[in-house]
Design a protein around this nucleic acid. Structure first.
Lengths: 146, 146
DNA sequence: GCACAATGGTCAGCCTGCTGAGGGAACGTA
DNA sequence: TACGTTCCCTCAGCAGGCTGACCATTGTGC
């Protein structure tokens, strides 16, 4: 049944694996009205409030995308947006009490991570390769002298 | 500058790497009015015409998604859709002459694959891990006794 | 002080993914 | 022949990515 993937481009392999991982992850997070994108933001916000741009850069996403992810998080009450008093261009984003609870509960039960661990033979090796790859590709993308 | 990704969930690493790979790939394919999704379809169609459902299953995507990818390919003249004469439920998809040309030209210059090769330390190992992972996760998703 | 950049967010629009719902064609069985 | 089921595709709507264009605020230089 499973097609022969040896002829697939590596990019397609990455995309497919990522979609499957997101799907498993989202199924787990739906309990808290969350998904993979929102969860990553809550995770960052666990430490301290941040501006939207800081969040966007931390998760390697455009500002506009972060804006809409925050719309959804705000709509579901996980997050609170407030114009900065010192610099009124900035929007300070912070966890609500409900958001912190969701973050803690969702983090405690990391079934999805366990699933990936089982699916990937050598998880640390895979992670190391992905991290190296992201570093290389994102440098190529975000620096002028690509 | 590059944030510390050691705390990232593996799913997020996969998504980020996949997006960066898609971005590089798309930049290369834009010359032919193509993107990563459309290219995968053309690649499959290189052998022989297929029905939409066959294409969807081959690239592990829902039928509705494939339908829209084909809309775009058709609009740009890469592909031709024709109702099957033997089974009028089916739609036979085939390459146009322009589509075949685009496929051949885009395949010849595989700069994006080379880029990924350079970014990933050990490309064959990465590919092997991804293929294993896709097999495992997609079995979990698409079979009843997940 | 004022014109002009740089910075931080948003709006609009496109693309790929998903789910849910529905329509038309083919097939089984009564 | 008629009916229900299955199969294949499409429409509608949501979400996360992206680009391009725009607005408000802040900072800079003359």
């Amino acid at each position: 049944m499973s097609s022969d993937m040896s002829g697939w481009a590596t990019g397609r392999l990455l995309s497919t694996a990522a979609r499957l991982a997101e799907h498993a992850w989202d199924a787990h997070l739906a309990r808290w009205d969350l998904n993979h994108a929102g969860f990553a933001v809550l995770h960052l916000l666990g430490g301290a409030p941040r501006s939207q741009r800081e969040l966007a850069q931390a998760v390697q996403v455009e500002d506009q995308t972060m804006s809409r992810v925050l719309d959804r998080l705000e709509r579901h009450g996980h997050v609170c947006r407030a114009r900065s008093t010192t610099d009124r261009r900035r929007v300070e984003v912070s966890l609500t009490r409900a958001g912190r609870t969701a973050l803690e509960e969702a983090s405690a039960d990391d079934a999805a991570e366990a699933l990936l661990g089982a699916a990937a033979g050598d998880l640390p090796a895979l992670r190391a390769q992905l991290i190296g790859m992201i570093g290389d590709l994102s440098a190529r993308r975000w620096t002028p002298s690509g």
